[in-house]
Amino acid sequence: MSKPERPVRTERILLRAAQEIKSGLVINLGIGLPTLVPDYLPDDFDALIHSENGILGCGPIAKRAQARASLIDAAGHYVTLRSGSSCFDSSVSFSMIRRGRIDLCMLGAFEVDQSGNLANWKIPGKLSPGIGGAMELAQKAKRLIVLSTHTDKHGRPKILERCRLPLTAPVCVNRIITDEAVIDVTPDGLLVQEIAENISAEELQNHTEANLIFPKTNLTGTSGVRRFK
């Protein structure tokens, strides 16, 4: 599938995130990195993308000749509809979300912490464009995966012991996919499932404020943890 050139860190997150999208799932992809994931799916993928402005069954981003002014996704892109799609009002759209009918949601994050708390809607005094659909998606999607660079643009950790920004929802994140690792939120803490091939376990821990659990290994080794490109 053709797609624009993107930074290596971004590509790595998106390629790994695309592997989470399984046939038949109803998926919502939040603004930012998540909306780019479909560029990394095979053309014949069979998931149903929900867009909270009122679409179930979004197809690829529309080319100019296909675009309709009345048909955008929640991120504002002109989109196409795949066969079997439906369009509905905002009340129905969020009924679908609150009712637990979204199998998988991917959201971006300002901060995520070891309890699975998520902060992605407000930086007091700096950025507060509104809540949008984030609270309802974070609280009610069956499975929530956060896509984020492992550290912010200043190199500071985004995976914290405890979120400092206002929460979007408490204890909602199941998995975190970054350019450095795939990490699951478990009752025992943050369990590292995969590490990027160019980074050591020690470096990964140094880039993370919260304590990481490495299965069947110690901080200097990575046996038992899958590598990804």
């Binding site: 909270e52 905002s90 009340s91 759209s93 969020f94 809540i131 949008g132 659909g133 984030a134 309802e136």
Partner: peptide, 11 residues
Amino acid sequence: VEFYPQGILAE
């Protein structure tokens, strides 16, 4: 500006 979660605003 008063903000509400989108689906709560709709509801």
